[in-house]
Amino acid sequence: MEQDYKAKDVAQLPQTPLARARARLVELVEAPWFSNAVMALICLNAITLGLETFDRFDPWRPWLHLFDLLFVTVFVIEMVLRIAAYGPSFFRSGWNIADFVIVAGAALAASNLFAALRAFRVLRLLRVVTVVPRMRTVVRALVDSVPGIISVAIIAVLIVYVFAVIAGSLYGETHPNYFGNVFTSMYTLFQIITLEGWRDIADDVQADHPMSWIFFLTFVLVGTFTMLNLFIAIVVRVVEEEADETEEFIHEETDHVLQELKVLSAKIDELKARLPDQERP
């Protein structure tokens, strides 16, 4: 798991005025109300960006731009506070780096020097992923599932290719618009995998080939339901593994704290046992 930098890490630094100020900043940026406020601003920013796409809000466009600039300013201030609180340790976390890149891009998009980046302002909404821990788990699971998804995708392409060759041989002469060559057949079969209009294609082919329903039914069962379930199974398995790792980490931290409490309790008992002896004349 990635390392998180909490107030206790900064508190271990020498108690200089700078260290105390950083500890206060860490307590500020890690306060629940601070995170909730940032989340609320991100949601409000999403609403204002969406309103700019409606023509009916053209008279309000200058105000919407002003609100957008205020949001960017607040995000930049928040980022500066977090960097000042954690120092160089801030950039040891991949999530913090992603958050920094998003905010920096938003600041550049708000300037006139990089007006072309204004179209990508909506990317700042991705900060929700970096702010909400549960979403981080989902993103990590998606990234970790990429190798498995690639393997399933290769199998899916092979299956589509095999069925495309078969379909071209069986129905290419009568329906060249669907199965004229292998690439046209693969495109048609991909459309069938999405279940978008596949019944119309099957009915057109079945008008000339009454037994073609066997081919389409087999392909839908194998190419759609089986492969789709494989994709879902891979993602679910990785999410469960991430959840198990998080739970295991919590248990380890809990056991460590309990062990420290036991040691501390034993020392307290030892001190209590010595106090009467020291108080005797």
Rank of each mutant, 00 (worst) to 15 (best):
L66D: 14
M186D: 08
P176F: 06
G50C: 03
F90W: 15
K262I: 12
T73Y: 09
V205Q: 07
I47K: 02
I83R: 13
M135F: 09
E242D: 08
A40R: 04
G94E: 07
F75G: 00
P281R: 14
L126C: 12
P147W: 04
L113P: 02
D200Y: 13
A141Q: 02
V29I: 15
S35Y: 03
S185T: 10
A109Q: 02
P176A: 11
G168K: 07
A85G: 07
F57P: 00
T246P: 02
S212C: 07
V160M: 12
A84E: 02
V103C: 06
D255V: 09
S185Q: 02
G87A: 11
F183P: 03
Q3T: 15
E245C: 08
L261S: 11
M227V: 13
I192E: 01
D58K: 14
A84R: 10
E253S: 05
E2W: 00
V220G: 00
T16L: 07
Y5W: 15
P32K: 04
A85H: 10
T16N: 00
I102R: 01
Q191Y: 03
V128L: 14
L264K: 15
R199K: 13
I83D: 01
T130L: 10
L117C: 08
I83G: 03
V263N: 10
Q278I: 05
I47P: 04
F215M: 03
Q191P: 14
V10E: 01
E173R: 08
T246Q: 12
A37E: 05
F91I: 03
F120P: 00
E245R: 14
L170A: 15
K262Y: 06
V263I: 14
G197H: 08
D144Y: 11
F54T: 05
V80E: 06
R24F: 05
R199A: 04
L41R: 03
K272V: 15
Q191M: 09
S111G: 09
V222F: 12
F183C: 01
H209A: 11
D58E: 11
N36G: 01
V74H: 10
L28I: 05
A153V: 06
P147F: 07
F215K: 09
D99P: 01
M211Q: 12
V128I: 15
L126P: 01
V122I: 15
N229A: 11
P32C: 06
I42V: 14
I149A: 04
H65R: 08
